[in-house]
Write a protein that binds this DNA or RNA. Structure first.
Lengths: 225, 225
DNA sequence: GTCTATACCGGGATAGAC
DNA sequence: GTCTATCCCGGTATAGAC
């Protein structure tokens, strides 16, 4: 459970070594190392944070030598991009297939479903989320933070624009409202999700958080009255 | 406009140098240097971010030598604490005097006033806010982020608790709702405030932001209907 | 492909002259 | 009190052996 599996998986391919199939045994081992590094990076990012994680932390956790890192990635930044790409690949189909017909964020069930989905995505990809969060927070005034906020809430914004087209009046521009909602969501996620429940003083279940956000965003503090 | 004023202000006191009054001329010069360093730090934190700012950036901006820094502060962290203390001192009376009688966040005017006040405080103390934000974001899972979120929204939480005592039903626990609101606010502030308007793609006036947040928090997406 | 060993550098922190 | 000069460490990145 500690390190990623280091056992060689190319047994089927390695019956005759040296000769090598078209794929290449070495290439497979290389891919394994790259994967091990990525997996170790995820663990480390979550535990120490992205900025605090040193290259040596990653290689050590992966059980590889320091120098090996640079055989696969140019640096920490590039590794993060790779993780991001993996995440997108994995998320692509999910999003597409379960994002069907109507969108009305005014409907309690739909709003809740959207919030829950977003929350789940963040939970499932915490290491990457944390890393992106930190790297975006790094340059105030550069617009990076705002950029992330708007791109991450693109889907949300579309729904809000649809609402507006349907003649509903929004609290503000779809962009700003979406950013506000997204900021709220990601800030809470960053504050609550990464903590091991024992140590963290806050003890809210996912359901409780999502229920609260749904109620707040749906009817505000006045509770619809 | 570049560096802080280096002209000596103790002219009234320095008529006879060497002898020295009870205050001490050197002590005054020292205080000036400390102030210059703090002021320079604020500028640098805002421009480069807290984590990116090197000691040498601060001393250079203050027009002092590197070594001088350590005659006044043990390190960057301690400097930040000093800035924080200054901010609290300055903010103390303002908060106390203009925070009178009734609190009903359900009242549009009062909610707006509270949001506007919070926004203004953040704007007025951007460098410190940015620094605290970054340093809190640094250790995921440590609870630091959650801690900041809850302490920063202590006042908000109290108001919410009062609401609840008055029999109003809230979207969730005061703590969680307050954290959500605070997260939304600080995230937006971090994303919007530090940008020089020209470069940043987002161009929202303070009023527009506050109006939007007021409407969103008051009645939610459904707009009270 | 992966290792060990090491060069290299940014930046924090200190010593001692002025 | 402040400066200059320097030490020193953590951490990145590379070279070359295996």
């Amino acid at each position: 459970m500690l390190g990623p599996d280091t056992d060689v998986k190319d047994g089927a391919n390695a019956g005759r070594s040296g000769q090598g199939g078209l794929v290449g045994v070495r290439a497979q081992k290389a891919a394994e190392t790259a994967d091990a590094l990525k997996q170790a990076a995820r663990e480390q990012f979550l535990q120490r944070g992205y900025l605090n994680t040193k290259i040596t932390d990653i290689t050590a956790a992966a059980g590889r030598a320091t120098g090996s890192f640079y055989d696969h990635f140019a640096g920490k930044e590039e590794l993060l991009q790779a993780l991001l790409a993996d995440m997108h690949d994995a998320a692509r189909q999910d999003v597409v297939e379960q994002h069907p017909a109507d969108h009305d964020l005014t409907d309690p069930e739909q709003l809740r479903a959207h919030l829950a989905a977003a929350w789940q995505v963040m939970r499932d990809n915490l290491p990457v989320m944390v890393a992106l969060f930190e790297s975006a927070m790094m340059r105030p005034g550069s617009g990076h933070a705002w950029e992330r906020l708007t791109t991450d809430t693109a889907m949300l914004r579309e729904h809000l624009e649809r609402l507006r087209l349907d003649g509903r009046s929004l609290p503000g521009t779809p962009e700003l409202v979406g950013a506000a909602m997204g900021g709220m969501l990601s800030m809470l996620a960053y504050a609550l999700l990464p903590g091991r429940s024992s140590e963290n003083s806050a003890n809210y279940s996912d359901d409780e958080v999502i229920d609260t956000l749904t109620a707040l965003l749906l009817n505000g503090l006045s509770g619809g009255r």
